[in-house]
């Protein structure tokens, strides 16, 4: 709990300084007061924990994001082609996919990655299954091969 508070504090300080752009005494003091108030409030709300501050993922998350950006780039081109070619080329498909993630965090990363890649949307997330709607059946096949699943599982292992 303490670790998460400290990391949240650092992030909030950076957020304030980058937003503010005025570094006079008064505004810095107000900033400190505001940040402590927000910390107090979020603790009362009980929203500061490993889910909102995923510290355990930090050191691996960048490699994953790079890979994800590449995927997003490819699937963007696919969807753009479909948009300009018209309705006849699309084959909308709905399918459930098994996921191997155990933690809530891993499931959410998986679901959001699926939605973030154009062409596939995670419609429903239940225990260990994701219901995916895909614009094109071929993009679902790519997902079923489990490349993304493997990478997220790797992300979770500490």
């Amino acid at each position: 709990m303490k670790r998460h508070s400290i990391s949240l504090f650092c992030v909030l300080v950076a957020f304030w300084l980058l937003n503010s752009g005025h570094y006079g005494f008064l505004l810095l003091a107000l900033g400190i007061i505001s940040i402590s108030f927000v910390l107090y409030l979020t603790h009362r709300m009980d929203v500061v924990d490993h889910e909102s501050q995923p510290l355990h993922l930090t050191h691996k998350v960048f490699a994953y994001h790079l890979w994800l950006i590449k995927e997003i780039f490819h699937s963007n081109i696919d969807v753009l082609k479909h948009i300009w070619r018209g309705q006849l080329t699309i084959t909308p498909t709905l399918k459930t996919i098994k996921i191997s993630q155990q933690s809530d965090m891993g499931k959410v990363i998986y679901a959001n990655s699926i939605t973030l890649t154009p062409g596939t949307i995670s419609v429903d997330l239940e225990n260990d299954e994701i219901l995916v709607h895909a614009l094109d059946a071929s993009s679902l096949e790519g997902l079923e091969l489990g490349e993304m699943d493997k990478r997220i599982s790797k992300l979770e292992q500490i």
Partner: peptide, 27 residues
């Protein structure tokens, strides 16, 4: 699940942004 985690992440920033807006009305 998804909203819960994303909202939890965002709450502190929304609150801090509101306070930032509050105190930077002069500028």
């Amino acid at each position: 699940l998804v909203i819960r985690i994303v909202a939890k992440t965002l709450f502190p920033f929304i609150f801090l942004f509101a306070l930032y807006v509050q105190f930077h009305g002069d500028f």
